[in-house]
Amino acid sequence: MLAPATRSVILLGPQPGPQPGSPSHQADVGRVLRELGARRPVALCTAGWQEREGEDEALAAQLGLPSVNLRLHRRSEELFAEDAELKEAYKARQLLLRHQQDFYRVRLDHADEAAHAIAVRHVEPELLEQERRVSVEFLRQLDRDHVERCRAIHAAFEQRWRPGDRPAVARHRRELRALIEPASALVIAGGHVASLFNRMELFDALGLAAEKHVIAWSAGAMVLTDRIVLFHDFPPYGKDIAQVLDAGFGVAPGLVVLPDPSRRIRMDDRAGIARFAQRLAPATCVAMDPGTHVVSEAGLVVRASATRLRTTGEPEIGWSG
């Protein structure tokens, strides 16, 4: 297959995964591949499934085309077994990122508590509304600062260790290029979003597939946007505030992907949705249940069928892009 004239980045709602208790709905990735006219094998990335990335038989059967699994998770283990220096440096970077995430999270919690404490004051509604906006802006500032600091850590790591120049990494990337080049599309499954993001970054999977259509869902879709936003309105410990994990790869810009909203978002909390959408604006917050899709070409959404979370707090069901 020749390189597509316009690369489509197609984001889908949740598909079946390998985890026990994972959604049991039908996969629609095969239908999307057929609509794209894909006839060659596809390159498959299931690194979000971590140690279970090889358990892809059910997914491969859904594709309707032969597939080759890039095995990025396994490759990372082989790589670190071979390059101990990079492994240590990588561990140190991840530790730093985790600390930073933790501190950002503490700041978010306190900002959220402050917003609540202000919101319950008995003052004029206009003043309260003004302060509410300030509270949202404060969260936006924390998010921006966090993403900038994440980017700085990644850049420093890249500059100091130049992974692409290291023999083991370069060899894996050559092998991956050989697998991806003949493929008609890169298909990225969901799973553990941090694990997936880290492996894709380590092997520059998107760089190697720069000319390919990309089809991704859930965690796979999240990593393609500008910001990876973690969220769950029903955690077992009561409540939680959404947080940015990191900057994403940005091939589907201007979107915040929110997979599986039926199970993860309190959709009747209009004030909460408004605050969330305002916090992440101007990005479009897209809630993606099974069967939904968003197609992005050249950085613009060209069509969609999903739910957009408006800054007014109203979900726009059937948003078409």
């Binding site: 979003v193 077992p236 410990y237």
Partner: peptide
């Protein structure tokens, strides 16, 4: 136990999106 342990050691729930 569920509330306590999951708050002290949050699981990958927040990180896993199938």
């Amino acid at each position: 136990l569920r509330e306590g342990l999951s708050w002290l050691f949050p699981g990958p729930l927040l990180l896993v999106y199938e």
